[in-house]
């Protein structure tokens, strides 16, 4: 075995272990802050896997989008609303657990079936383009994947409008969920100069 292949194998093993253990930690840990940080670790290792597959642009984009934006926002949200509240005990916890376990096991068996039936090996080594991939991705985004690309931007625009409506509650005079008139005083304080009315 050559040195390059050995290195690749070691990297692959470590990254896979981090992904699996980290993902289990995200689900199983009690503390939500730990889960959020572990999620960042999982995203990083997935980026490492992309690097191993010679997709360096996708790896960097994964780090930028998932670690730098998504995960930071998740952590931000957790830290801003870190309210210690006692959750209400759920009544029929046992049957819920049975149902969720069975759903998860079904999904797992489906995935195992996919893994066993699909042929994973790529046909020819010419498929690996390595450093050229940035240009190829650009070409695809502006030709045959143009419509999904543009639709994704519409989706982002909708999310942005939604966020603005939720954040600036003075757009709507009634609260969407309760129907009560919105208390607008707290959101936008009247911008009265502090010193002019004193004399």
């Amino acid at each position: 075995m050559s040195i390059a292949i050995t290195t690749q194998f070691i990297c692959f093993t470590v990254l896979t272990l981090v992904v699996i253990i980290g993902a289990l930690g995200v689900v199983l840990l009690e503390s939500i802050v730990y889960s959020a940080f572990l999620l960042g670790g999982v995203f990083m290792s997935v980026a490492g896997l992309y690097l191993l597959l010679n997709a360096s642009f996708v790896a960097a984009a994964q780090v930028l989008v998932y670690v730098g934006a998504v995960n930071v926002l998740i952590i931000f949200a957790i830290m801003l609303v870190n309210k210690k509240e006692d959750l209400k005990p759920i009544g029929d916890i046992k049957s819920r657990r049975i149902i969720s376990t069975s759903i998860c096991l079904t999904l797992l068996s489906l995935l195992i079936r996919v893994d066993l039936t699909n042929v994973w090996s790529l046909s020819s080594p010419q498929n690996s383009i390595g450093e050229e991939s940035t240009i190829r991705i650009g070409e695809h985004l502006f030709s045959d994947y143009l419509l999904p690309f543009e639709v994704a931007s519409v989706l982002l625009l909708m999310a942005m409008i939604g966020a603005i409506v939720l954040a600036r509650r003075d757009v709507l005079s009634k609260d969407i969920s309760t129907g009560l008139p919105v208390d607008q005083e707290l959101i936008e304080k009247s911008s009265e100069p502090l010193l002019t009315n004193k004399n």
Binding site: S56, A61, L64, G68, V72, T134
Partner: peptide, 21 residues
């Protein structure tokens, strides 16, 4: 590396996680 300067932009976006942590 082919992605050059983009690597720096991606890496510098990790830093806020350490600061928050």
């Amino acid at each position: 590396v082919g992605i050059g300067i983009f690597l720096w932009i991606a890496l510098s976006s990790i830093q806020p996680i350490g600061l928050l942590m």
